[in-house]
Simulated scan of single mutants.
Amino acid sequence: MEHFSIIQSLCRIGLGANEPAFRRQVERLQESLLASGAEKEAVVLARLLATSDKGSELRPSKLSLSGGMFRGERLNEKTPPPVDKETGAPLAEIRFPMDADTPLPILGFELQKALESLVMEWSNLDALGAMEVHPATSCLVYGLPGTGKTQIAIAIANRLNLPLVIARLDGLISSFLGTTARNIANLFHFANRYQCILLLDEFDAVAKIRDDPHEVGEIKRVVNTLLQSLDARARIGLTLAITNHENLLDKAIWRRFEVRIFIPLPETQSREKIISQYFPPLRLSDVQLGLVSWLTEGFSGADIETMSRNVKRYMALNPQEEFLAALRSYVLTNAGQGAREHQKLILSDQHELARALYKEDARVFNQANLASLFGKTQPTIARWLKAD
C-alpha cells in the first residue's frame, strides 16, 4: 500500500493521545484493510491498537471503560446483515432482544452461579471501572450438542438488551480461494460497527488446528484472519463462540478467549428441573418424575425436551394406557439414547424393573411408590423384591 509508512506514523501519534474517536477510525481502517486482503498492513495496525491498549490499561478510568465497550451505531430491523460477495448469501442472522428477564437454561448450581456472575460483570461496567478492571470480552462455550450453549448466548444478549449477531461459521466457508477469510473479515467489520454481541456458532469449522496434515494451506490463512479479527475486537464488544468439538480448536484460538466454559450433560437434580419444565400439562407423580430422571441419565436438555413431546403424544392418543407404556414406546422408537442399561430394563418384565429401581433408590422407589407405578398392591411388590 503506497505511503502506508506515513499512515502508520499518523496512527501511532493519534493513538498516543488516547482519544476514543480517533481510535475508532483506526479500527475501521484496520478492518477495511483486512477485508480487502491487505493482511500485512492490517497486522501492523492491529499491533498498534494492542500496544495502545496496554498503555491505557495502566490508567483505566470509569469513563473510558463504560464508553469503550458496546460502542458504535445502533442496529435496527432494517439493517441488512453482511453478505458473501460471491454468492450474496447472508453471513449472519440478527436476533433482537426480546425479554430482559430471559432465564439461563437449567444448569448445575455452581455453573449457573458462575454464568450469572459473568452477566453481572457485563451489566455493570461502571462498577468494574471503579475497581480499575476491564470486563472479559470473549467467551468460549463448549460441550455436547443439546446442552444449552446457544440458549445461553440468547439469554445473555436479552439480559444485556443487545442484538445478537449469529454467524454459523460452517456457512462462511467458500470454495473460492480467499473468500472464506474475506467473509470472516467482513463479519467482524459488521459486528465492530454496531452495538451488538457477536456469536460464532460451529466455531470449530474455521478455528481448526493449523498444523493438521489433512488441512490445506487455505485453513491456515483463515485461522490467521480469525485471530487478527478477534484481537481487533477485544476492546470493542463481546464475542461468544460455541462448539461441540473443542478438541479441534487451534491452541492460539484458545488463548484468545478470556472465559472458557464447559457445559456438561445435566446431572440428576438438573434433569428433574428440565423434566418439570417440559412435561406439563402432563402431571407426573414423584415416582414418575424419579423414573423419567433415571431413564434420562446421559441425556442432554434437548433430548429430554424431545422425549417429553413423544410421551405427551402417546398419552394424548392412548389415555387409558399406563405411563410406563408411553416410556416403553419412546425407548423402542429412540434406540441408543442415554444409558443403554436403563433402556434395556424399561423393556424388561415388571419384576426385573421393579427390583432394579428399588436397588437404585429405595427412598424414591419404595414399595408404596412402586405399587402406584405398576398398578399393583404392596404385597405383590414385596414378593417381587424378595424374589431377587
Rank of each mutant, 00 (worst) to 15 (best):
H3D: 15
I6M: 10
I7Y: 11
S9K: 15
G14K: 01
G16Q: 12
G16L: 10
G16M: 07
A17Q: 14
E19Y: 02
A21Y: 09
Q25S: 13
E27T: 14
L29K: 00
L29E: 06
S36G: 12
G37N: 03
E39I: 15
K40D: 15
A42V: 10
V44W: 04
V44R: 11
R47A: 13
R47D: 14
L49K: 01
L49T: 00
P60F: 00
P60C: 02
K62L: 14
L63E: 15
R71Y: 10
N76H: 15
K78S: 15
P80I: 00
D99W: 05
D99K: 15
D101V: 02
E110V: 13
L111Y: 04
E121H: 03
N124E: 09
L125V: 12
L128K: 10
L128R: 07
L128W: 08
E132L: 14
E132Y: 00
V133H: 04
P135F: 02
T137W: 02
S138Q: 06
C139V: 13
L140Q: 02
T147F: 09
Q151N: 09
R159V: 07
L160V: 08
P163F: 00
L172D: 03
L172W: 07
I173D: 03
I173T: 14
S174T: 11
L177G: 00
T179V: 12
A185N: 02
N186S: 13
N186F: 00
F188N: 03
F190D: 04
R193T: 15
C196R: 11
I197R: 06
E202V: 10
E202S: 09
F203P: 12
A205Y: 09
A205H: 10
I209F: 10
P213Q: 05
G217S: 12
K220L: 05
R221Q: 14
R221N: 13
V222N: 08
N224T: 14
L226M: 12
S229G: 06
R233I: 04
A234K: 15
G237A: 14
G237M: 08
L238S: 10
I242G: 13
T243C: 13
N244T: 04
H245L: 14
H245G: 01
E246A: 15
L249S: 09
A252Q: 05
I253H: 05
W254Y: 15
P266T: 08
E267T: 03
T268G: 03
I274M: 07
I274K: 03
I275Y: 06
Q277S: 08
Y278F: 15
D286W: 03
V287Q: 06
L289Y: 01
V292A: 11
S293G: 13
W294Y: 11
E297S: 09
A302D: 01
N310T: 11
V311T: 07
Y314K: 03
Y314Q: 02
M315Y: 03
N318M: 05
P319W: 08
R328M: 11
S329C: 08
L332I: 05
T333V: 09
N334T: 14
G336V: 08
Q337L: 14
A339F: 06
R340C: 00
K344I: 05
L345R: 13
I346R: 00
I346F: 01
S348L: 05
Q350G: 01
L353E: 07
A356E: 12
K359Q: 14
V364M: 13
N366F: 11
Q367H: 08
N369F: 00
L370V: 09
L373M: 07
Q378N: 02
T380N: 09
W384F: 11
L385Y: 01
